[in-house]
Design a protein around this nucleic acid. Structure first.
Lengths: 235, 235
DNA sequence: TCTGAGTACGTACCAACGGTATGTGAAAGA
DNA sequence: TCTTTCACATACCGTTGGTACGTACTCAGA
């Protein structure tokens, strides 16, 4: 059989969009093909071990095409990263749809996130290599726009439901901490021999921590002011 | 003045150790010089942007020397990583010395960790690039032996003080989650405009979370069994 | 003191890779 | 139809990690 290039496969089921020339469609299809193939390779072998030749080879194009669409290797990685992150956040958003209670939302969000984190692409590209390849700055920017943004929403909802209204900095701090906890939890799940069991354990642990906060809130314990720590001693 | 190579500087204040030949001492000094210079360069520019030529140039030796001591670039990075991690864990261990109460220990450990995480070398080499360069496997192995091991001890102490005795898997899960939380907290501190304030906020937040757990423990709430989650439905 | 071996480097070189400069043919506008 | 433009292909370069090999110095043993 005649080998069809990845770009051709994409073209074969392109919808007809009025106002978009065939040329533009073709161009977009090769770009998508490049991102797709790069995504596979990055996931399987990692960034450093994946050469541009390997990427363009898989996509059945040449470096000329790649450098026409991207400014370099890192830009390709960034495109892959963005796609994976976008897919992840839409998955979580979809799961969240419908639930209204903040505590329930938190738990559902956690579950959805634990599913995401089992995806090898997410593990490799986002968690493992994202910070190193993109640099901390860009990595955080990207996260802000997707998964971390979601966590922040959830944390705000939970804490406000507990009648705590905190400064934007404390909200940020709490969100970062919870995000870190969830990432580690996800990591724990993703490397577990039995993911099912690991998910149950993680839900138990985080549920327990949330219950602790809830208990404090309901018994009227107030959140201390960080300023006090700066002024006086500890305790 | 005659430029002294980094290795010579190290040699100049070497203690006399009986049973160790001068040749061995010299060899060790160039190895240390290589690790030191590599550490600086990796911290400043990152792994990928640091060439072997730059490293051996800074250390005033050639690639022959480097490849005599290390199997390759990654091995050099690993040596740097190990040194930074070891320094960090000894710092924390020293801070922990003396305190006995598990809750107090946890807070002191947190504080020590928040200091560590402000070191640019720790940020760059351990947090940012460690997972990508070493790979997840080796990265976790190394962590296990240093910082994560400490966290695990602390979590065990706290939870056992709360009369919870949990399975080793649940302990692992809790430890991972707390470690993630602390890492994120550290990240939050390390990138903050005002680290002093950030430290206070982080301590407030984590203190609050710990207080929640403590409250549950003291009011006799038991930790649910993860098995229940697996058998039945949720909630 | 001499000698041989082993070790700690230095030197010369290579293949692979990311990146660039330039060429080319087909589609789109005139 | 002519021309321009754009989406690629081709050819090439500098740098880099890694290797093969050469060399001088140290040190144990005779």
């Amino acid at each position: 059989m005649a080998a069809r290039s990845p770009a051709e496969k994409i073209r074969s089921n392109l919808p007809k969009v009025p106002g978009v020339s065939r040329r533009q469609q073709y161009s977009a299809s090769t770009k998508r093909a490049l991102v797709d193939e790069a995504s596979k390779l990055f996931t399987k072998q990692g960034y450093a071990a994946t050469s541009l030749d390997a990427i363009v080879g898989s996509a059945r194009v040449t470096k000329g095409a790649l450098y026409h669409h991207f400014s370099g290797k890192q830009a390709v990685f960034e495109a892959v990263f963005e796609k994976i992150e976008t897919d992840a956040s839409t998955h979580i958003r979809k799961a969240l749809k419908g639930s209204k209670d903040p505590w329930e939302k938190a738990l559902i969000g956690l579950r959805a996130f634990l599913e995401i984190v089992q995806d090898p692409g997410y593990q490799r590209v986002v968690i493992q290599e994202g910070p190193a390849v993109l640099g901390y700055e860009r990595f955080r920017e990207q996260e802000e726009r997707s998964s971390f943004g979601l966590v922040q929403e959830m944390v705000r909802a939970v804490l406000e439901a507990s009648t705590y209204d905190l400064s934007s900095e404390m909200l940020e701090t709490f969100s970062r901490i919870f995000f870190g906890a969830m990432s580690a939890a996800g990591e724990s799940v993703s490397t577990a021999a039995n993911p099912k069991v690991a998910v149950a354990q993680v839900e138990t642990a985080i549920g327990f921590i949330l219950a602790g906060i809830r208990s404090l809130a309901e018994s009227g314990v107030s959140l201390p002011d960080p300023e006090d720590l700066l002024a006086g001693g500890s305790e």
